[in-house]
């Protein structure tokens, strides 16, 4: 065991313990750590954003490199500040309109292609019940169709239609179960990360 001489490591240990103290019950140490995390995250984010976005992407090209075409995005950006004024907030709508319009124009076709058409294509699969892959293909097709039918609310879920919707619920439940299992794994990973930090970085224990 070799205790870390780095004061920042021990500050991190203190805050880790403060946060985990919530598992016992809510307490002032937890509240203190929670507020510090929020404050530091916002402060750090703002400083980095100012340096890497405003200075490097606006000030440097416009002022130092005399790239005067940067005046247009700069003005659009500045118009957003008028959201703070009740009388002049309409000016910010030009920027929002441009951003929403450009974002939708650029993003929609690609998003439809990547997340709808390609996924639809991936459900057009060969069926062959003599191989494991073929059976898996059948399960994918059945899962997609029954799931879609479950979310079809313009017809009452009765008879064959209701039966297929019921199968859809089973597929959804299996999906939720997998997500829950992965979520448990993820949360434990975070705890493992903190334990490793305390053991290795702070206490200097050689683990594993």
């Amino acid at each position: 065991m070799h205790l870390s001489p780095n004061i920042w490591v021990w500050i991190a240990v203190f805050f880790t313990l403060c946060i985990y103290s919530f598992l016992y019950k809510d307490n002032p140490f937890y509240k203190f750590a929670e507020h510090v995390v929020v404050g530091v995250s916002v402060g750090y984010g703002m400083v980095m954003w100012w340096n890497l976005s405003v200075v490097q992407r606006c000030w440097v090209p416009f002022i130092e490199q005399q790239r005067y075409d940067y005046i247009f995005p700069a003005i659009l950006g500045l118009l957003l500040i008028f959201r703070l004024s009740q009388k002049l907030s309409w000016l910010s709508r030009y920027t929002l309109g441009f951003t929403v319009g450009a974002g939708a124009g650029v993003g929609l076709p690609l998003t439809i292609q990547a997340t709808i058409l390609k996924q639809f294509q991936a459900t057009v699969l060969p069926l062959n019940f003599t191989t494991w892959a073929g059976i898996c293909n059948f399960l994918i097709i059945l899962g997609v169709l029954s799931g879609l039918i479950y979310f079809f609310f313009s017809k009452e879920h009765k008879g064959v239609f209701g039966g297929v919707a019921q199968v859809g619920i089973w597929f959804l439940m299996i999906g939720f179960g997998a997500t829950f299992g992965y979520t448990v794994m993820a949360r434990l990973s975070l705890a493992i990360g903190r334990v490793l930090f305390i053991l290795q970085d702070a206490l200097g224990v050689n683990v594993g």
Partner: peptide, 21 residues
């Protein structure tokens, strides 16, 4: 959507356990 669909760039990713499914 932007790199693979628009430019055919090969993509791989690492995600958190919550997102993986």
């Amino acid at each position: 959507t932007m790199a693979k669909e628009r430019f055919g760039q090969n993509i791989a990713w690492g995600v958190t356990g919550v997102m993986a499914p």
